[in-house]
Design a protein around this nucleic acid. Structure first.
Lengths: 328, 328
DNA sequence: TTGAAAGCGATACCAC
DNA sequence: GTGGTATCGCTTTCAA
């Protein structure tokens, strides 16, 4: 790879001049500028980002920390972030924390060591101490906290809507899945649903389960064994809902007539399940973009309209819930 | 962040000594070593990877280029790579090329500018010119090429198996989906299937479609309009298979009695489809790990047993295909 | 066994 | 307008 020295030599100027042309900073005669640009092109010179980064203590990289890249919800977020960053010429280092604090710490360290200019984190570490004295901007995504700006969707409302729609459609013995205790958004949607269920004339069970696929499969089995009379399930996410749906069909439950299911997230595959899954939609891609925008605004010290961006959730009616009379 | 100077000062030695201790290189008296290590711990010093990288022209980063992070097959590969790298203390910059050569070039540039020690690419750029004079090791994943080491699965065999299983189970008018023309693995599985179909007493249609979700949905609709008599579909990947399954169910086809479907990949959600999807499994996670290992072996100049690692594919029988008599 | 000093490739200050 | 040079934080000769 050619260096700035090579360019300088070729153009017959000093490295300082090349640098100035490169960064459009300070004066440079039009002719000199052209000369330099020609040399750059001829040598196919690209500035060494590492050297740049060392001096400026900043880079064109941001770190994106995901809890589980295999859960389709997160790649969707990632795409949003990526597209937004791409538009601003910033690249991503994606880290998959795998729900393990150790990995998370590790990645944050790597991010710092590589001079990322900011971090977007979608992980579950309640102990924000990890992020406390980081000296670089952090935005939380799909997650709320008081200590940092964040982009998330309205979990309370989501849970509430799920419960309402479920009740409206006549389920009487409802199983409410509660996501991991350390995930704030999971607890929000849980609380939203609980409130609503308490106020209604229905029985309900609370079952705690992780967000992962594998756990959901096991959980589904036990659920139907222990509570065979359940006629409505509010899942903690679409992945769990899919596992439950699958198990329900396997043991011959009829959906939605005999059992209704509502998921959460609206991952791309939800509409391909059979029957297509009714769910609470989080605008994942848009959330990613917003987080990207927010972070860049912070980095560029633009005045912030808001530090906490709450995105709306919507009920997506598909076919794991019964139709409700138009004027019910 | 503390620098090596701070550590040196605190330990009362020179930076050179600290560096030696840090890297376990060259001599250092046991006492000095202890002194330095204490200082490091007290200051919570972490070496600046950027500075290190600038001098050594190498880093602890590798670049992973994915064609489409939203297709669940790729995160699965990524996890394999990541786990393998993690074990070796190497981190990933993941780039999502989005099937766009421009993005791909861009990412490769970023990788280089950040001194990655190697690249794993799962993209579709047939013109390997992109990767030709890169001066850093490249391993292709889920993709074959003569110019670089690669890890891939046996597409020819996969296509063949799919066709055999389909024929064995009695479909007579088969639609064969052909993935994107520029994707070598897609063409392999296509060819494998074609060969087999040609040798059998069946009719078949070839339909070209992309790997994406959205396209698959549209394609599914037209497929059933134009070829309503189709009684077996060999899809180019699970995503397409899911779209087709969905459409088939929607228009009231009975599966597998009236229509059989075989997918390709065995992404995690395939078993949650209804009916669960019969498919050709690629060992995605393992492929990722192998690619990671291969790359690290190249980087560490270990003798290579093989430059081209072909992984086996297997038929996963689920319920979109009919049962076959045991001694048929 | 240790330390001084020369780089790695860029930026930016200060002279000219 | 332009060029010389200190600097970013680290590694690695080379001399002591």
């Amino acid at each position: 790879m050619a260096t700035i020295r090579d360019v300088a030599k070729k153009a017959g100027v000093s490295v300082a001049t090349v640098s100035r042309v490169l960064n459009n900073k300070g004066y440079a005669h039009e002719d000199t500028r052209r000369l330099v640009n020609e040399a750059i092109k001829e040598l196919n010179y690209k500035p060494n980002e590492v050297a740049r980064s060392l001096y400026k203590k900043t880079s064109r990289l941001i770190g994106l920390l995901l809890p589980d890249i295999r859960n389709p919800f997160f790649p969707e977020l990632a795409r949003g972030v990526e597209d937004e960053m791409q538009a601003q010429g910033i690249h991503l280092i994606i880290g998959n924390a795998d729900e393990k604090p150790k990995k998370e710490i590790d990645y944050i360290q790597t991010f710092k060591q590589n001079n990322v200019i900011g971090i977007i984190s979608a992980t579950n570490q309640a102990e924000t101490s990890l992020y406390e004295d980081l000296s670089i901007p952090v935005v939380f995504l799909d997650r709320t906290t008081n200590s940092h700006p964040s982009v998330y969707s309205d979990g309370l409302d989501g849970g509430k809507i799920a419960a309402q729609e479920m009740i409206k459609r006549g389920s009487k013995r409802i199983a409410l899945l509660r996501g991991p205790i350390e995930v704030r958004t999971a607890q929000d949607r849980f609380k939203g649903a609980v409130d609503e269920l308490c106020n209604a004339n229905v029985d309900f069970q609370v079952i705690t389960s992780s967000f992962s696929f594998h756990d959901a499969e096991k959980m589904a089995k036990t659920l139907f064994e222990r509570f065979p009379e359940t006629d409505g399930i509010i899942a903690s996410n679409d992945l769990s809902a899919a596992a439950i749906l699958h198990e329900a069909l396997r043991i011959g439950r009829s959906i939605p007539d005999d059992l209704q299911i509502i998921g959460y997230d609206d991952i791309p595959l939800s509409k391909l399940l059979f029957p297509p899954l009714s769910t609470i939609r989080q605008p994942a891609y848009d959330m990613g973009r917003e987080a990207g925008k927010l972070l860049m605004n912070i980095i560029n010290k633009k005045p912030l309209e808001q530090n906490y961006i709450q995105m709306p959730v919507t009920f997506i009616e598909r076919q794991t819930t019964r139709k409700v009379e138009k004027n019910g």
